[in-house]
């Protein structure tokens, strides 16, 4: 180990450090995929409400089966309760990434998050 370390000259340490820094910065820079900024609530495909993900609040949408309750929190949003039979959108929990979407199909309600620029949503996968 020592013989190997002896091969490094002072500038090499600096270069390795700089390279490590580039790697360290590249992960958060390229892997965040943007931040979710707004929550969009739709009923029958039409936007019925839009909230910034800044302050906590609740919002109720009246669909054909009853009320779907949406909860907004700083940086995230979820479907708190839904009258649908299988509760898929409720079980999905908190949505945090831009373009994530929770669909309560029986009640015709969807909750999606949008970032700065639109791209693929989670159902593309």
């Amino acid at each position: 180990m020592k013989t190997w370390l002896a091969l490094l000259r002072p500038g090499d340490w600096a270069a390795a450090l700089a390279a490590a820094l580039v790697v360290g910065v590249s992960f958060p820079l390229l892997w965040t995929g943007g931040r979710a900024e707004r929550a969009v609530v739709r009923l029958d495909g039409r936007v019925v409400a839009e909230f910034p993900l800044s302050s906590p609040r609740r919002y109720a949408v009246a669909g054909p089966l009853g009320e779907t309750l949406i909860e907004i929190a700083p940086g995230r949003a979820r479907v708190l309760s839904d009258p649908g039979p299988r509760q898929y959108c409720v079980k999905q929990g908190w949505l945090t990434r831009p373009n994530a979407i929770a669909i309560c199909a029986p009640n015709h309600v969807s909750l999606s998050l949008s970032g700065r620029d639109p791209s693929h949503d989670s159902i593309n996968y």
């Binding site: 490094l8 270069a15 580039v22």
Partner: peptide
């Protein structure tokens, strides 16, 4: 062109790799 007293093959290798 870097001064060899300070920079060894590791610097060249890192530059080349990146």
């Amino acid at each position: 062109r870097l001064p060899r007293r300070w920079f060894g093959p590791v610097t060249a290798s890192l530059l080349a790799a990146f």
